[in-house]
Design a protein around this nucleic acid. Structure first.
Length: 407
RNA sequence: GGGGGGAUGCCCGAGUCUGGUUAAAGGGGGCGGACUGUAAAUCCGCUGGCGUAGCCUACAGAGGUUCAAAUCCUCUUCCCCCCA
């Protein structure tokens, strides 16, 4: 195991906060002297099966901790998922069945292990202990927290002030998370800054129940491709870990320049010194941001795929977006022969049939705006039927291509 | 239990007092175009549906008043706040 000093430095790298720092030092000292790894907790709700780059931030930190010799306990919040987190009041989340949860958990761990060291990771489901509790247990544990304390939580107080509803069970979420920490006797819990309150609740409960309190490490939240809001699937600004390499590449290219370094630090595998170098060169104008983004995109794709696939994703990008040519693989769409009259069709209908637009209105707009092409020729007359044959390539806007097959 | 406020298009939100000019301001998002080192930024345009025409559907739901209702009336559902 590395020395305490080295470990502290590495842990502090790109983290937001360590609470409290002195306790981390103590724990590390003990771990080193007894040569006993620390138990690092990381919890996740398997509500959606797809992980995105935002999730990768803590995973990366966990991997670093594993490399230092520590052990990670990955808690799958299957219990939480089963009752359905109602935050965001309109979209009452569909209750997940245990089968779905199992499936989500599986894809989740598969993706997580692209980053984590499997040999140093324990996986636990929190239903193992939460499902067994009865109402008395719940009341006893809930008694360790006060409403005033819970209302301190930023999003609760905000919602309260704005007159938005807060479900009683939502109040229990921090409590449940805290119980997880107690159950697995976590030494450290890692999570995004948005989890700070919940993780601190874990500290509190551990202490109240006579355990040594966990140290809380918060990590920066990664903004999504819009560059403003945190990355999240529901906001549609996420980059999924299972997305195709070409998609990931393109999405990375679309992040605002201002976010480049943050992405390098939080999502790539580049070393701090490499990142520093890039940062300097960018500042001096020696390095073109577009070039840096290409490097970033490849570096990220290499984590989840391979160097080769990263390359070909880049080639694809150049081909389609820089040179504005059609991509290598274009999906084929079947068009029924009976839709044609002497192999001619109304162009609006053609694009609808090809699935490139959702309604005739949208198709009209597309054509009127000169965004519809057949074999790279813009359609100019919306009323005039066009003739098509198998193998023709339709294009909507700059990036949607479809090859026709007349049946 | 009592009192008050609210529900508008994908989302947020104006309009409701003073009915028609409202497919419904504005913003966000999305889409298209121009530009560019980029699917960044910026700028411009479009943004309910329907085969090309005027129709249809639409302001929580159901009725009603009216020549005409997002706007007025009644009931219902749901949400929020305050007092207890």
């Amino acid at each position: 195991m590395e020395s305490v000093k080295e470990q502290l430095d590495l842990i502090a790298l790109d983290t937001e906060e360590v609470l409290p720092p002195a306790e981390l030092k103590q724990k590390l000292e003990k771990a080193v002297s007894k040569n006993k790894p620390l138990n690092i907790k990381f919890g996740v709700d398997p509500t959606a099966p797809d992980l995105h780059l935002g999730h990768a931030v803590p995973l990366k930190k966990l991997k670093e901790l594993q490399d230092l010799g520590h052990v990670v306990t990955l808690i799958i919040g299957d219990f939480t998922a089963r009752i359905g987190d109602p935050s965001g009041r309109k979209a009452t989340r569909p209750q997940l069945t245990s089968k779905e949860i199992e499936k989500n958990a599986k894809t989740y761990t598969d993706q997580a292990f692209k980053i984590l060291d499997k040999g140093k990771t324990k996986v636990a489901f929190n239903s193992q202990w939460l499902a067994k509790m009865d109402f008395t247990d719940v009341l006893n544990l809930a008694g360790n927290f006060t409403i005033a304390r819970l209302l301190e939580r930023d999003d609760f107080s905000k919602r309260y002030k704005e007159g938005l509803p807060i479900g009683l069970h939502e109040f229990l979420y921090p409590v449940m998370q805290a119980i997880d920490s107690v159950e697995i006797k976590a030494d450290i819990e890692v999570g995004g800054t948005d989890q700070k309150f919940n993780m601190l609740a874990g500290r509190e409960l551990q202490e109240k129940l006579g355990q040594e309190a966990q140290v809380v490490i918060t990590l920066p939240i990664l903004e999504g491709v819009d560059g403003v809001q945190k990355m999240s699937k529901s906001l549609g600004n996420h980059i999924g870990l299972t997305e195709a390499p070409e998609e990931i590449f393109g999405k990375i290219m679309s992040i605002p320049d201002a976010l480049l370094i943050k992405y390098f630090k939080l999502a790539s595998t580049m070393s701090p010194s490499e990142i520093e170098k890039i940062e300097k060169e960018l500042k001096k104008g020696e390095l073109n941001p577009a070039q840096a983004k290409r490097d970033l995109a490849r570096s990220i794709i290499e984590i989840y795929y391979s160097q080769k696939e990263a390359r070909s994703a880049q080639d694809h990008f150049d081909r389609v977006f820089k040179e504005q040519k059609a991509p290598d693989k274009i999906p084929t769409v079947d068009i029924e022969k009976k839709e044609l009259k002497d192999s001619r069709v109304w162009p609006v209908k053609l694009f609808k049939l090809a699935g490139l637009v959702e309604s005739h209105g949208e198709g009209r707009r597309l054509i009127e705006q000169k965004g519809a092409y057949i074999n790279d020729k813009a359609i100019t007359d919306i009323e005039k039927n066009v003739s098509v044959k198998s193998g023709d390539v339709l294009r909507a806007g700059r990036r949607k291509f479809v090859r026709l097959r007349i049946k």
